[in-house]
Design a protein around this nucleic acid. Structure first.
Lengths: 343, 343
DNA sequence: ATTGACGGTTGAAACGTTTCAATTGTACAA
DNA sequence: TTGTACAATTGAAACGTTTCAACCGTCAAT
């Protein structure tokens, strides 16, 4: 590999000058000299060494991504893929490389060691558990951090980007109410994820706003992983006539798909006898029969926004850090209909 | 951030000694000294700077991933996700960070600039076009490279990992033949991808081996992107009675799903009147109705193997580079059946 | 003629590590 | 007592950049 010194020798100038022209800083330099340097660099196929540069500039030109669990587990998730799509797009635009840390971030200590090696200039933290202590400790490191799919308490110096979960839940509620449903159930996501809590409470409040109450026995604790949705739904459908809800709002599409499966296996027609609304608009949502009515998250935009925010934070000229909430959208497909008339 | 010099001062020894104990090399060092250094490091929360270390060691501790197109486009692809899963798992094991370059690698020049900055120790090249000149130029860089989803001509110093496409196509052919099909069609993938060519020719040969010929008009050129599969299938099904194939082997699941959709829209029953076999076993394959019979690629294992090979190449003790072919598997689901009896 | 300004260029000092030859101290053998 | 061996430690030279104070002409103004 050719070094900057090789280029300097080849073009007969000092390394300082070579550096100046190659980084075209605003230092004055004769056109002729510039040409000599440029052609020497091309001739030697010179590429600046990122580490040497990073060492003195104290910038690596790379952004890190930290996952809440092993990255391997998360790679398969369409949720992450969609997010990544936006992240990559924005990173390409900002000319930043992306560093994936295969280890999950768990303790502050562990993540500190990742952050501490200064391999990246800032970090995107994906879907962290809503554990304020850890979050705070992480932000306390004085390292540019943007949380994705989370909200940070105002006052901490960090930024967060997320879909407006409450608005999403409200959209689901309004849709179901408009169809005429009065007895509904909710399949709740991971209880340690803030989004799950937000979706539940906003759904409850939206119903209450229309004089419909969400009963305690009608909210089932599941996880975003989804499989629990099956048994929960079977249990719901096994209830005596009149005790079963006519619609289910699932905290994400995985749960919704599981519910759909359960309904099919129980011989309950969807949407004829049971309506189901999901959340996310995962690719699978449009492939099921019936296709899923769901709340779409603008995942790519969330990713883009996060990168943009992080870049600003790194350059130090960011606006006051805050929670950025992006609007969700109701996508009506085939899994919702008015409740059966057998009231 | 504390530097190694801070640790040296704090523990009252030289930086050389600090470096020795922290990297526990086989240099002899008094137990007492070791303790002093260790506790000083802990006290100061010292983290070695990855760039400084990389600069002198000439190793970054990171692996790069290069995609054949914009990474953003590829992120959504379940194919890539599954691959990534294996890559991440193996990278975690090898304690290597992963660097994603958001820009696609197109020309050698462009990728050389990525490779040249020495930010990574080696590169995984995903699904490159089967363009020997570019491949050769890339391998000629003297940089550890492993191609994924490609085969390299023997002799070039690079390694490649892929599913055994020919065996996969053979599996599909045998399955269809065993069911009794004699007139089949093939939806071919990208003509610039080696895998598409391999799947086609192996399918053709496997049929020929049983005395069945694949007619020219029955192989339709599509792309892995999939959408063309719809029109191609419609055209196939619109042929006069007796001129239409009774089964389709699609080069990947996207094409197979499109074919399924086309059959449904044309009122042709699957698998009653038309059998469809896909390739990949993408997540969507099990969600369609009927679920797709397909050839499963061991994508996570391919990713793992690639990382392992790359690590070996970096350490310089790798075995002779070669093409590693992993075995595919036939997954029989609901989209295949014997041909209709109306012969 | 002296000064000042400025365009153009240089050389060396960082950046934070690792590594290695050199050095010190100690113990043992001759 | 001298020499040798070896365990333990040191100090400085790399690694390949960027940056910045300093320097040298040259030209214009005084």
């Amino acid at each position: 590999m050719a070094t900057i010194r090789d280029v300097a020798r080849e073009s007969g100038v000092s390394v300082g000058t070579v550096s100046n022209v190659l980084n075209n800083r605003n230092e004055p330099v004769r056109a002729e000299t510039r040409q000599k340097v440029l052609s020497a660099a091309r001739l030697l196929n010179y590429q600046p060494n990122a580490m040497a540069r990073g060492l003195v500039r104290r910038k690596s030109g790379a952004l890190g991504i930290l996952f809440h669990t092993t990255a391997a587990a998360v790679a398969l998730d369409p949720y992450t893929s969609a997010l990544l799509q936006g992240i990559l797009r924005a990173a390409a635009e900002a000319r930043q490389a992306l560093v994936l840390y295969p280890e999950p971030w768990r303790s502050v200590a562990a993540s500190a060691s990742l952050v501490g090696d200064r391999r990246v200039d800032g970090m995107l933290v994906i879907a962290p558990a809503a554990d304020d202590a850890t979050l705070a400790a992480l932000t306390g490191l004085g390292f540019p951090l943007v949380f994705v799919s989370a909200t940070v308490p105002t006052g901490t110096g960090a930024a967060a980007v997320d879909v407006d979960n409450e608005q999403g839940a409200r959209l689901a509620a309004e849709h179901l109410l408009a169809l005429g449903h009065r007895r509904m159930a909710h399949l709740r996501g991971d209880h340690h994820q803030a989004s799950a809590l937000q979706r539940e409470s906003a759904f409850r409040e939206a119903l209450a706003g229309s004089g419909v109450s969400l009963r305690e026995e009608d909210v089932l604790s599941c996880t975003y992983q989804g499989t629990e949705g099956y048994d929960a739904t079977r249990a719901l459908l096994a209830r005596p006539e009149g005790e079963a809800p006519t619609a289910i709002f699932a905290a994400n599409d995985r749960l919704a798909v599981a519910a759909l499966q359960a309904a099919r296996d129980a011989g309950v027609e969807v949407p004829g006898r049971l309506s189901i609304v999901g959340f996310d608009d995962a690719p699978a949502a449009s492939l099921t029969t019936p296709a899923l009515t769901t709340i779409r998250q603008p995942l790519p935009q969330i990713g883009e926004t996060a990168v943009r925010l992080l870049s600003q934070a790194i350059q130090g000229d960011g606006p006051a850090p805050a929670n950025h909430l992006l609007a969700p959208e109701l996508v009506v497909r085939g899994s919702t209909a008015p409740p059966p008339l057998t009231a």
